[in-house]
Computed example of a mutant assay.
Amino acid sequence: MRNKKIIGMILVVLSVVTSLVGLTGCSNTVSQKVLKIGVIGPESGGAAQLGQGQRKAIQLAVDEINAQKLAGDWKLEAYFEDDEGNPTKSASATNKLIQQSQVNVIIGAIHSSATLADMVITQRTGIPQLTAGSTGASITEQGNKWVFRTAVNDEFQANALLKYAKDVTKVTKIATLTAADDYGQSGEKLLIIAAQKEGLELTNKSTYNNGDKDFKPQLLSIKDSGAQAIFMWGLYNDAALIAKQAKQLGLNVQLFGASGMAAQKLIELGGDAVQGLILTQTFLPSSPDQKVSEFVNKYKNQYQEDPIPHAAQAYDTVYILADAVKKANSNKPDALRDAIAKTTGLKLVTGNPQFDDKGNDIGKHLLITAIKGNMYELIQTVSTN
């Protein structure tokens, strides 16, 4: 009888141990089949519309990829942090996502200065980072194999804008008015190089600090220089104020801008002053393309508003990650990074992604657009290939 009790106890213990081992194995399997995505952007502050659009699009993509099992056995999870467009806060958010949330990949940031701060951390920790909003040239010029860009870089945008200005608007004298941060100063250098390439005269170059309210000193200097066009490189809130004050001063010039200011808020804040402003972007909600239409309809049904270009680029970025983790069948940094680098064969909302050896997406279509009424109108498409 005693032996039977001992044998019974041994069987119970073995059963419990076996169950625990099974549960542990199951837990490990589950954890290996989850791709944790950390997302950083300005969800508050002067560029909040860009960060909020990014967040909405990423969550939309994550939900539909999981529902349709488009990443195979892998489940995607998104963890969001607001950096307010501040490089120091962005770096802190990156550390938090990697150390506390233990994310496998980062999507961020939007401000180029914030992305540059985050890159130091992702490179040190060996975590892939994709920016769906930062276009500063220096981001992909540092030989950092962990960084990819799903926006069109500033160099290509500057070249396209200056060529259009010369060939179509026929201007010969230009001025630049750019933000004093990394994004703006990178843009200024590229605009000057592009102007020289096109044989255009640079009559004035001026800068401003983000959040400035008075641009009249710079605009008066530009007016005195005889410039026929002003090329701005900054975000939508500053661009709207610049346009309003240029109109108040009677500047009869053509305004140009880059994708950093491509948001509906530019039209709302700028009103009549931004009518006719020409700028670059990668996405228009009015496009007849089937992929674009499907995305716009899903986004509008979910959020009751049109998506902005930053949202479309972020949405595509999640699909790139879903494809990469499915092909790699791993969320390990090296395997994931290599799979991202080899991305091909996808037809997405903003193009057919393919990365060059620097991490730039060369499968985009750059759109030159003009503000007409309350919308952006396509005036020219330029291939990045």
Rank of each mutant, 00 (worst) to 15 (best):
I121S: 13
G136F: 03
N209M: 13
V152G: 03
G133S: 01
K170N: 13
A165T: 02
A195S: 09
W146L: 04
I193K: 14
S206P: 00
A132N: 14
Y208Q: 03
L116V: 08
Y183K: 01
N153R: 10
Q185G: 06
A151W: 12
I127K: 10
L162Y: 08
S206G: 01
N209V: 12
Q157A: 06
I139E: 13
G133H: 06
G184E: 09
T169P: 08
S186E: 10
L161N: 04
T172K: 13
L130F: 03
D118E: 15
D154R: 01
A179W: 06
D167H: 02
D182V: 00
I127F: 09
K170Y: 02
T122G: 10
L200S: 09
T140H: 10
I121T: 10
A151C: 13
A117F: 14
V171F: 05
K163N: 11
D154Y: 05
T135W: 08
I192M: 13
N159I: 00
K189H: 07
I121Q: 12
E198L: 01
T169Y: 12
Q123V: 01
K173H: 14
T135K: 07
D182K: 02
Q129S: 08
N210S: 14
I193R: 11
S138I: 05
I121D: 13
I127D: 11
S186P: 00
L177S: 03
G143W: 02
D181E: 06
D167F: 03
A180H: 01
N159G: 02
G126K: 06
K145E: 13
L200A: 12
F148R: 05
K166D: 07
E198C: 00
G133T: 02
E198D: 03
N209E: 15
A137C: 02
T150M: 09
A175H: 10
R149D: 07
P128L: 08
Q123E: 15
G199I: 05
Q196L: 06
A158H: 06
A194N: 12
A132Y: 11
V168R: 07
A158N: 05
K173A: 10
G187N: 10
V152H: 07
N209S: 14
I127C: 09
T125K: 15
A151Q: 15
S206A: 11
E201V: 14
T203D: 14
D154E: 15
K173T: 11
A175Y: 12
Y183G: 04
N159A: 09
A194S: 14
G184H: 05
A194Q: 12
N153V: 02
K145C: 00
V120D: 12
T140E: 08
T125S: 14
I193Y: 07
Y208I: 00
T125M: 15
N144E: 06
V171Y: 04
Y164A: 03
K189R: 11
